[in-house]
Design a protein around this nucleic acid. Sequence first.
DNA 1: AGACCAGACCGCCAAA
DNA 2: ACTTTGGCGGTCTGGT
Length: 333
Amino acid sequence: MHRVAVLGLEGVIPFDLGIPFQVFGDARDADERPLYDVSFAARRRGLVRTSAGFSIAAPFGLSRLDWAQTVVVVGSDPPQAGVDRQVRAALRSAQRRGARLASICTGAFVLAECGLLDDRRATTHWRYCDDFHERYPQVKLDPAVLFIEEGELLTSAGAAAGIDLCLHVVSVDYGLEVANRVARRTVSAPHRSGGQAQFIETPMPSPRLQSLESTRGWALEHLHEPISLDDLARRAAVSVRTLVRHFRSETGTTPLQWLTEQRLLLARRLLEQTDLPVEVVARRSGFGSGQTLRLRFRQALGTTPRDYREAFGAARAGGTIDRGGARCDALAG
DNA sequence: AGACCAGACCGCCAAA
DNA sequence: ACTTTGGCGGTCTGGT
């Protein structure tokens, strides 16, 4: 089992605190055996006051961090700007021995305070981005994304973006299939693309702003063929300029970036669930060649398609499982 | 690894 | 007056 310590300091946000327990706790293998051992650690064992006013009993103190392979620092409200020596030492030593460090919401303040984010890309809740940047100008803050993975350091935006981060971690550790099962159990989106910009600008997207939804749906059905901006614009019956503009306001990203993301998800699914050669997987998921797929794979997941399949592909007795028409919505289940 | 080229992206502006 | 659209062109990016 992968060992996870969840660190919650003074004023911890209960919503955020629950996320890693819910997501990692729900991750099971095919035989329903839990895949993560998750612990709540605080500055010291005992009661921690939450941002909601009530207190929660932490069964562990900072020493629990030594035990963990992954440490998730949960946000506090207001953010924990000052971090005492022990917390700093515990996090630094976790990093030194190669543990994975992640933050949810304003947990990034704690990591930044320890100097762990210097010269790295990171994100935090959009409401605190100005404050964060002022305090930690040496951190390359990106306010526009749901989460960022920089090697063994991951940071996520506010609250629910923590779910995206944790699901991503599960998918890296145990494959998409497992992550999707968790998403289904927790009834959350298996993979939300686009940044937090979409929530900043339109907290509840008006129906009108969903106008490209069917166009995206069409694209998901045709990932295996080349899709140009012209194609999408024609589909949406607008100019390319307007398409790009709307696309950004709805998803927080550009059409090509979004397509690449979706194609990678499809490729991962094909690698996990079929025996198709990598070259064929590349074509089926709309990458022009195996080389392109390999490049994207390395950029996004830091591994190769072959190794990915090795790690997560089910060895199936019946031979190739080929569902033919590549449909990305199958990712949801 | 690097070069090349088509296509993607986006600021700007005028028109609707 | 204000919002939305679409075209132009310069720069950037991704795929080969």
